[in-house]
Amino acid sequence: MYFNIRYFLLSVILFLTEAYIATYVHDAFIRPFFGDLLVVILIYCAVKAFINMPVVKVTLLVLAFAYSIELSQYFHIVQTLGLEHSKIATTIIGSYFSFIDILMYTAGAVAIIATEKTAQKLKRHETVTEQQA
Rank of each mutant, 00 (worst) to 15 (best):
L103R: 08
F75C: 04
F3P: 02
I51M: 04
G94S: 06
K117R: 13
F65H: 02
Y74R: 08
V56W: 05
F3C: 00
L10D: 02
L42Y: 09
L103C: 14
V39A: 05
G82P: 04
F65C: 05
L14C: 12
Y44R: 07
Q132D: 15
L10K: 04
Y2H: 06
P54L: 03
L37S: 05
C45V: 03
K121I: 14
D36I: 03
C45R: 02
A133C: 13
V128C: 10
G35S: 09
V78A: 03
L61R: 01
V40R: 01
L122M: 14
V62T: 05
Q132M: 15
K123D: 15
L63D: 01
F99S: 12
V58I: 13
A19G: 10
F8N: 10
Q131S: 14
Y44C: 08
I93L: 09
I5L: 08
L122F: 12
L37N: 03
G82Q: 09
F33S: 09
C45F: 04
T118P: 00
P32W: 07
V128H: 13
F8S: 10
V56Q: 03
I21P: 01
Q132K: 15
T91R: 12
I69V: 11
D101K: 02
V128L: 14
A19K: 12
V40N: 01
K87L: 11
I30A: 10
A111C: 12
K123F: 13
A49N: 09
Y24H: 15
Y96H: 14
P32F: 09
A66M: 07
A28C: 10
F34K: 05
Y7K: 03
F97N: 07
V62D: 00
L10W: 10
V25A: 14
D36W: 01
F8E: 12
A107V: 07
E116L: 08
T106Y: 04
V47I: 11
F50E: 07
G94A: 06
R6G: 01
T23Y: 14
F15R: 04
L122K: 14
S68T: 00
K87E: 11
P32K: 11
V58D: 03
A66R: 01
Y67E: 02
I102T: 07
L9W: 12
L83Y: 00
F15I: 08
L71R: 00
L38Q: 05
G82N: 08
T59P: 01
F33L: 09
A66C: 13
Y7E: 06
F15K: 05
E18G: 15
Y74N: 02
E130H: 15
T23W: 13
H26M: 13
L38C: 06
K48R: 14
L103N: 09
A19P: 06
L61M: 10
V110D: 02
D27R: 12
T106W: 06
F3R: 05
F29H: 13
I41T: 04
L10E: 06
L42W: 09
D36Q: 07
R31D: 10
T91F: 06
A64E: 09
L61K: 02
I112R: 00
Y7F: 13
Q131V: 11
A109S: 14
P54C: 02
Q73G: 04
Y7A: 07
